[in-house]
Design a protein around this nucleic acid. Structure first.
Lengths: 248, 248
DNA sequence: AGGCTTGCTTGACAGGTGTCAATGCGAATC
DNA sequence: GATTCGCATTGACACCTGTCAAGCAAGCCT
């Protein structure tokens, strides 16, 4: 299926003294290299639900990786329309858009009480010069974000409401499963409006489509609590419209 | 206005023996560093209209910068829906999505007879370790692609057909102007269907919307020949829905 | 506990865009 | 120069989603 997720979750390292590193730092670093990384990564910072990690236009200094909790990023138009550009869970990296102009290009907001690791970019950049695999890892992370954005474009440009929502639910499910959580029973961290903002739909359409899925017996909806009763039906719904890649 | 363009066009260097470098390589390289770059960049390759530069699933080895001509990139779903993810003109870079999986994530197709410079990625990567400003430049290019993708998401998720098309025309106009071409009189290199594929619209809607703009006296349409008669009206149309950034 | 706020659901309706179809125009081919 | 094919334009109509509105449930505050 399409990967609408952030680009970090599949890489793991053996070092476990920081949960972040399990998820987001490259394999293949020796003891000395790990120590250098340790010296650069800043202690985590806590954010309450609704707090901004950064805002559009803020000076760019660091990337941020979610340690616990959830964030969304979004861009806004002058007349106030909001487009959520991503939802981020543990291990996922935010702020890559800030490098180009030395200014953050979107807002990042905590969806619940959360904390993040700060990665000062210029120091990561110079460390990358000493540690080629680290440099390569950052290129891969940025590239992965671009790939994710492309599949979001496919979703926004070509899919119908039911397909978008099915793809969204399956994407969440897969990312949660890869973190060891239940794939078919989870809590939505975002409102209907925020889901709609990400999927290019109005909140009423999100609500109606969830109800429709429930009426068909494919899912169970209890406010933010979602159970996937027939994930295979959702998969069938998105099979046709999902990206045809080398693996398909 | 939103920047829907590819991320290279604004950087220029004084070296002029290769038109590519005027547009896409970083400033601040000394003579020796330029020589190292020369040794890595491959001679240009020619492509006829309709030819593929690369396809989804092809092994990733190189980035490609347009020297002359025009390309589009697009992703496709299994059931054949196409989403154009970008149009590329001279100096703009394609293939950044391939880094993440060592496999190209989209198709790149020449819109007319074109030629490109090939940048073998692993050699650029190692060169980046010796030339920090080059490394930083590549991070900026990738970040800029992410920023561009975000504004496309805003377009696809929130704008109406007229707004999308106005934003598209103004974006083309601005990129052409930055290359020394007329801003208000140009030839579309892509079909109505390809424009629609990029904007998340059907070709009939693109055609109708162009006709509407023409009836209002804002533009003149003669097949692929477009003249912007009242670009300020188009700008007014997209003013509200364009991204609110630090500069606005 | 009561009232308020916020978010969600559901319905009726409207409007924008997609779909289908016919026609026209231009470029390429023979 | 005639024919064919691809692309574009335009119209009629349908349908999906947005808009507006009402009602409901849960959580929060006093």
């Amino acid at each position: 299926m399409n990967d609408l997720s952030s680009p970090l979750h599949s890489l793991k390292v053996t070092c476990t003294n920081c949960s972040l590193r399990e998820l987001c730092l490259p394999i293949g670093l020796n003891r000395d290299e790990m120590a250098q990384l340790d010296a650069v990564i800043r202690q985590s910072r806590r954010f309450k639900r609704g707090e901004y990690l950064f805002r559009t236009g803020d000076g760019f200094r660091s990337l941020y990786a979610v340690r616990t909790g959830y964030f969304k990023t979004c861009v806004s138009s002058r007349d106030g329309r909001e487009q959520a550009t991503g939802f981020y869970m543990s291990g996922e990296l935010m702020g890559l858009d800030g490098i180009s102009a030395n200014t953050h290009g979107c807002d990042a907001i905590a969806l619940e009480d959360s904390d993040v690791c700060e990665l000062p970019f210029s120091r990561m950049e110079s460390l990358g010069r000493d540690i080629p695999s680290l440099q390569h890892h950052f290129f891969r992370l940025m590239s992965r974000e671009i790939v994710r954005d492309q599949s979001v474009m496919l979703l926004l440009g070509n899919m119908k409401a039911e397909e978008r929502l099915a793809a969204f639910l399956l994407n969440l499910s897969q990312r949660l499963a890869s973190r060891g959580f239940a794939a078919n029973d989870f809590i939505l961290r975002m409102s209907r409006e925020e889901i709609g903002s990400f999927l290019g739909l109005k909140l009423e359409t999100v609500s109606r489509t969830l109800s429709k899925f429930q009426q068909q017996g494919w899912i169970r909806v209890d406010h933010k609590h979602i159970q996937l009763l027939r994930p295979e039906e959702l998969k069938a719904l998105v099979a046709g419209c999902s990206q045809a890649n080398s693996a398909g």
